[in-house]
Design a protein around this nucleic acid. Structure first.
Lengths: 333, 333
DNA sequence: AATAGCAATGTAAGCGCTTACACAGCATCA
DNA sequence: TGATGCTGTGTAAGCGCTTACATTGCTATT
């Protein structure tokens, strides 16, 4: 086990001081050509790689931004996160990702871990969060931006989950649906899930239905869970329209509808939310709400980098969503 | 902007030395109860969070493992990576993820970045890699483990891509298919894609076909690309069986088959590879090769942690795959 | 020719933590 | 009672970098 070469090793080999080597690496224009060549040769020869921890400690900058997402397993965050990462990468920032498995305690732990690791800014999903965590971030003065949700009062880049879902529900109600069922992700600790259900309720109310009559089944993420929720809904309420809180649940419901030998959308309509690739792959393609994942990721990256550079505060941005027409929504029989 | 509290601040407030505070945090049993309580109270009161960089620098341990995957956007790596991360988390390790967008230069850059950030071990995908990178890892003595592929000679935990695909192709050939087309991910720099195509060729040869007659269309990841490749294949070769290098491409081909008004598997059979959730969601469900993603992730995590702890060298492990029966493979008409 | 001004480099003081070693206080044992 | 061993803490030396400031040797300017 050879000892990893340090700045000092490089300096010794190039016959210069450590300061010069450091400058060669961080501000090459401050070092005259022949010296630089000598240093670079030494760097190459030794296979030197700067120690990030030491650099971070000395310079107090890490060029790192962290993100805590509920899960990696689910395509819902993948596209936006990829765009977020690409934008950060272009600007020389690095992304640290952690996942919380939808568990607030784990999220808090991940946030602490990322901050301790030098994350200068944080991307978080949704607003539901222990105030202690918010306070921690404040005392550490780490800018945190929430994505996939919108709230004018708190820094966030996302969309209006409630309004978007209400628009979709209104469209369905216009077609004449009156028996509606909802399959939602667990609402505890998930403001987006709550807002979406609220959106359905609001639209129903506006259409003259009693929002409290609408059955809501909660199902954890996953195709299978969506299918089981569909079973329960059909057994009890037999709605003509099943509104799902996300595309994954909708895909599960759609699959299960086939098992019930129900034709979609003739016998039952099913809608999703998120507009991930999956929604266009299932047969029939899902009618869903298209979310601007990439735009959100890019905007979040730029906002966070600006905040880290001290260029002003984090603001809120509400992006537009639109109904993505598929083939799973039609008038009731 | 309050200055983040340091160990020294905590020590001052608790009326002890910094060493004692450090011990409280890292080896509580070495500190007597009343002292510890005082220290912990100070930690709490100040909202102290240890500085990871300083700790890493002083202790020369980071409890961090890095992973470089081709893309986050694609479900193919998500499940295995999630399992990898969960296993690491249980053992108190943290995961740093970077993505390379299937670009060797970016992968090399990401590897350097992760090592500089203190990754004690690395999870990499596939064996194709610039020798300079391998050498870099060796000089830094960072154990690197390859996943999603297998090679007895180099540390890897995965499966035999060639044999797995050959088994699937053999099954199809047994059904009587003779006009075969392949849609593969780009093979340059991707040993897994190459091995899978080789598998098809080997099976074809064994069945008395000329492997060189089998058309292979390369398509980048993505549903759309899979569809376009399907177009080209049908226009030129009109095979009775389309073997796809992964489920995403297969899903794209399946979708496009519908546009061609071809019934699958009556008019054309289509197979995938990977066995991700998507394969069971599309209609009809894909016949594919099921890969033990979670087992692979867990095994990789354990192997890397053992190597980091100095408990022996990294070994290779070849996991079993199996054909996952769907409804897209049937005898030719 | 003396002076200022600048560019290239060196010197050395930390950044916040861990940990080997030193030390003090106390119980234990001959 | 004095030597012996613990145990709980403190002291201080780094870990590998960055960077303010000092130094040196030039070229311009007067």
């Amino acid at each position: 086990m050879t000892n990893t070469p340090t700045l000092e090793d490089v300096a010794a080999r190039a016959g210069v001081s450590t300061a010069t080597v450091s400058r060669c690496l961080n501000a090459p224009e401050k070092v005259i050509e022949p010296t630089r060549a000598r240093v670079m040769a030494a760097v190459e020869a030794l296979g030197y790689a700067p120690n990030f921890s030491a650099r971070a400690l000395a310079a107090k900058r890490t060029q790192t931004i962290g993100a805590v997402i509920p899960t990696m397993e689910n395509a819902i965050f993948a596209e936006g996160l990829q765009a977020f990462q690409e934008r950060l990468g272009e600007a020389g920032y690095m992304l640290l990702v952690a996942s919380s498995s939808y568990d607030p305690a784990r999220e808090a732990e991940a946030i602490r871990a990322l901050v301790a690791r030098g994350a200068e800014g944080l991307l978080l999903i949704g607003h539901d969060r222990d105030p202690a965590v918010i306070e921690f971030l404040a005392t550490q003065s780490v800018p945190a931006l929430v994505a996939w949700a919108h709230d004018a009062a708190r820094p966030s880049i996302g969309f209006d989950n409630r309004a978007a879902m209400a628009a979709l529900a209104a469209r369905a109600l216009d077609l004449g649906h009156r028996r509606i069922g909802v399959i939602s992700a667990p609402r505890a600790g998930n403001d987006r899930a709550r807002a979406r259900v609220e959106g359905v309720r609001a639209a129903a109310g506006a259409a003259g239905l009693n929002p409290d009559d609408i059955p809501v089944i909660e199902a954890p993420y996953g195709i299978e869970a969506g299918g089981e929720a569909f079973d329960r809904l059909m057994e009890t309420a037999a709605p003509s329209l099943v509104i799902c809180g996300n595309d994954v649940l909708a895909a599960g419901a759609l699959k299960r509808a086939r098992d019930w030998r129900l034709s979609v959308p003739r016998d039952v309509s099913i809608t999703g939310f998120d507009g991930i690739e999956l929604s266009r792959l299932v047969t029939p393609a899902l009618t869903t709400v298209h979310v601007p994942h990439r735009a959100m990721g890019v905007a979040a990256a730029e906002a966070l980098m600006a905040a880290c550079a001290g260029e002003g505060e984090l603001a809120s941005l509400c992006l537009k969503t639109e109904i993505s027409d598929g083939e799973t929504l039609a008038p009731p029989r």
